[in-house]
């Protein structure tokens, strides 16, 4: 798939010396949903802000549909819609007026038919004449999405779109994102809710301390880097793990009723057979066996911790 956004050696050092991005290289594919994961201060918002023109890069280049974001900013910005993290909206203007303003700002001629459909799709049509200050937080978030889509962009950036949003609206939001992807819009989102990235993203990028630690297809990532756990339920509880099992990554859980063995699916051998044999030799009787696949969250935490310990 062709890249709609190409980021090469992008670095940003803010006044005061804080280096928010360290030589980022990333290609974002046309039509995909890319989730950027990372702890607070990792550099996610800085990366988005540079592409959208809100922050100047210190070095490196970014192209959008082949155009440079600085030299050809008019072409690149026309293609991009941004939903910021904060609920940054005026107070006294009406939803309808603010949408018309946004569309014009991005150089598009008025198109009330398109804007009407957009408001209907976002369940905002009945609020079109309401002053923005009277809308709930969730409705304001929808208005921000509508504003970002008002000029019919090909790329949509969602910066922490579900922060502070209730469960129902969050679900609605992901439905909207899915519909947009189906209509061909490329979506880049940052989120703290890893399970959402797991549900919705095609690819996942992990950023920590200004470095892009990895970018990969979500499914591949989970398969490839996923750690699995073998949960062994014992017939009789034990006080401590027998010495003969010390060499394995085994933990005692559930008041001695369970043994949890963590193994790497990428390893040459999982070690399950020998664990079970040694368990039998130690005189333990099994009641039940179960395996669990590690979540994206576990992978994420692992990567970030590794990154910290290597720093």
């Amino acid at each position: 798939m062709s890249a709609i956004i190409s980021i090469s050696n992008l670095s940003k050092t803010y006044e005061g010396g804080f280096q928010a991005l360290k030589s980022i290289n990333l290609d974002i594919r046309t039509g995909e949903i890319l989730a950027l994961l990372g702890p607070n201060g990792a550099g996610k918002t800085t990366l988005i802000s540079i592409i959208c023109g809100l922050v100047s890069p210190t070095s490196g280049t970014v192209t959008v549909s082949g155009f440079d974001i600085i030299q050809d900013y008019r072409q690149t910005r026309r293609e991009i819609g941004l939903v910021p993290q904060e609920l940054s909206l005026g107070a006294f203007e009406k939803a309808w007026d603010t949408l018309r303003f946004s569309r014009g700002l991005f150089g598009q001629k008025p198109d009330d038919v398109y804007l009407e459909q957009l408001l209907k799709d976002l369940s905002l049509w009945d609020k079109k004449d309401n002053e923005l200050r009277t809308l709930s937080g969730g409705m304001k978030r929808r208005v921000l999405i509508a504003k970002a889509l008002s000029h019919e962009p090909k790329i949509l950036f969602l910066d922490e779109p579900t922060a502070g949003v209730d469960v129902e609206l969050r679900k609605d939001m992901w439905d909207i994102v899915n519909k947009l992807r189906d209509s061909g819009v490329t979506i880049i989102l940052t989120t703290h809710y890893i399970e959402e990235a797991e549900q919705i993203a095609d690819r996942v990028g992990v950023i920590n301390a200004g470095e892009l630690l990895l970018v990969d297809d979500k499914d591949k990532l989970m398969k490839g880097l996923g750690r699995k756990q073998l949960i062994i339920e014992l017939k009789d509880p034990i006080d401590k793990v027998p010495e003969s099992l010390d060499s394995y990554a085994i933990e005692l859980a559930d008041d001695g009723q369970e043994l949890i063995y963590t193994y790497d699916t990428q390893g040459k051998s999982t070690g399950i057979t020998s664990v079970l044999q040694d368990l039998h030799a130690a005189g333990l009787t099994m009641k039940d066996l179960n395996t669990t696949q590690s979540s994206l969250q576990d992978i994420f935490v692992h990567l970030v911790q590794d990154n910290k310990s290597n720093a």
Binding site: G53, S88, L89, G90, F106, G107
Partner: peptide, 16 residues
């Protein structure tokens, strides 16, 4: 005022 409310982001990210 747009700076104060944060809505200036839209102007700064527009092709203008």
């Amino acid at each position: 005022f747009p700076k104060f409310t944060g809505t200036v982001y839209e102007i700064m990210s527009a092709p203008i």
